[in-house]
């Protein structure tokens, strides 16, 4: 099963390597990973999307917790949360397809952020399904390049990750 995990880690050098090394060394898989500093500059947050059955996920969570640089680990799967990802897509554009591309971008509340003589670059934000749907529509028109940020996620409501009990 797919799991989205939020980690609070010490904002120090080498932490990303510790986490990536743990996943590769133990054969856990990473679908996407995002890191950034939090409001507290000594802490970074990571969002990891991974897959595994219950036994594997139990190990993933325990092994992450065991790292000295990891302050907290939360598996969002059994919680109510929102997730987003941003994608930049460069699509081939010609007289026949320009209008179509613009229409698709609009439907997905996307923006054209760069225009070339033969391309449009579109920015779209959303959850995994939305992005996948967008890409499926653009693909026949000719996607030249594609960059995704990886998932970020957050609990719904007033709860925050740093709270005890979360």
């Amino acid at each position: 099963m797919r799991h989205v995990i939020t980690l609070l880690v010490e904002n120090e050098f080498g932490v990303l390597a510790r986490i990536a090394g743990l996943f590769s060394g133990r054969g856990f898989n990473i679908e996407s990973l995002g890191v950034a500093e939090t409001l507290d500059p000594t802490v970074s947050t990571m969002t990891i999307v991974t897959r595994g059955d219950d036994q594997i996920m139990e190990q993933v969570m325990k092994q992450l917790n065991k790292l000295v640089s990891v302050i907290k680990v939360v598996d969002l799967m059994d919680k109510d949360f929102v997730e987003r990802e941003m994608v930049l897509v460069k699509v081939a554009a010609n007289a026949d397809t320009r209008a179509e591309i613009l229409r698709i971008a609009e439907i997905f509340r996307g923006k054209v952020i760069d225009v070339g003589s033969k391309t449009y670059t579109i920015e779209v934000t959303g959850d995994e399904k939305k992005i996948d749907a967008l890409l499926a529509l653009l693909k026949p028109l000719g996607i030249k390049e594609l960059v995704r940020t990886g998932r970020v996620a957050m609990l719904r409501g007033s709860k925050v990750t740093t709270e005890p009990g979360v």
Partner: peptide
């Protein structure tokens, strides 16, 4: 050596 020993130490420091 920090990179090399990361998976075989409980923790390491540079």
């Amino acid at each position: 050596i920090i990179g090399i020993t990361r998976p075989c130490t409980k923790h390491n420091y540079l």
